[in-house]
Design a protein around this nucleic acid. Structure first.
Length: 247
DNA sequence: AAATACGACAACCGCGATGCG
DNA sequence: CCGCATCGCGGTTGTCGTATT
């Protein structure tokens, strides 16, 4: 059995990242406890996995969500509720954590706008999304928490949407979004139209094989987009890690 | 220039699901 | 079939950078 041990917590250092990347490169992204142990990282397997999935995984897009992605998130959330990982699979390069954070921020904004608009003078456009809609599913926070503050996670989804308030339809939402993005039309297809910016770090050595099931469901073209990218910086790190490993 | 508020993102925690001996 | 170990997911909290006062 595992004897109690003090595991490191908090932010990861660059060196820890290097190590983790190296070991994942060697052993794959599955046996996290094992990797945590053999790597000498004083972290739990869980922590290692999280770091990998949310930050180090090759193919991660970073930076702001595109309007298309935002739109997709809204739509999928309306459909599936807080199934972040499921939603994330439809957005290659985005993690469930990222989407969750985005949603939280987004809902907070909406809540604030709602509050504001609750007072007589409301800016018509600003509060576009708080609800749902006419022909679409709702995406809003629980009606019971009108303050908006309480829980940004509304659990959404078909089941508990509805009964929304002052008449923002999904159409309105889309309209608003459309204004900002003009001509990008998407349906519920994954959006790959925009080439991902080079991931900050990404070893992507040949030995990299990432399990398709673990993150995104990638079609061939999608994966092509990601794989070739190599960051020199990280590649060097990887080499270092390798050296470290082999002594 | 300093203090405060806010937003974005990273990380941890708890729990249920799954796999394996 | 059962119990344990591990993984994955969703929710929550913490940290840090930036904008505002």
């Amino acid at each position: 059995m595992v004897h109690q041990q003090e595991f490191r917590k908090g932010p990861w250092t660059e060196q820890e990242d290097f190590k983790l990347v190296s070991f994942v490169g060697l052993f794959g992204d599955r046996r996290w406890d094992f990797i945590a142990k053999v790597s000498g990282l004083n972290r739990t397997g869980k922590s290692c996995r999280l770091r990998w999935v949310n930050y180090l995984h090759p193919g991660l897009k970073r930076g702001k969500m595109t309007p298309q992605e935002e739109r997709l998130v809204l739509e999928l959330h309306a459909k599936w509720g807080n199934r972040w990982s499921k939603i994330a699979r439809k957005l290659p390069g985005r993690t469930d954590n990222e989407i969750k954070n985005y949603w939280r921020t987004y809902m907070r904004k909406k809540a604030q706008e709602k509050k504001r608009s609750a007072s007589p003078i409301s800016s018509p456009i600003s509060s576009c999304v708080s609800s749902l809609s006419s022909n679409n599913h709702a995406v809003e926070s629980n009606p019971s928490k009108e303050n908006g503050e309480e829980s940004f996670y509304d659990t959404g989804g078909f089941n508990n949407m509805i009964e929304e308030q002052e008449g923002y339809s999904m159409d309105d939402i889309w309209k608003d979004i459309d204004v900002s993005e003009e001509e990008n039309i998407i349906n519920l297809q994954p959006i790959f139209s925009c080439p991902p910016p080079p991931p900050p770090h990404m070893p992507s050595p040949s030995s990299w094989e990432y399990s398709s099931d673990s993150l995104w469901v990638m079609e061939e073209e999608e994966s092509k987009m990601f794989l070739p990218t190599t960051s020199d910086h990280f590649f060097n790190c990887y080499e270092q890690g390798k050296a470290f490993l082999t002594g």
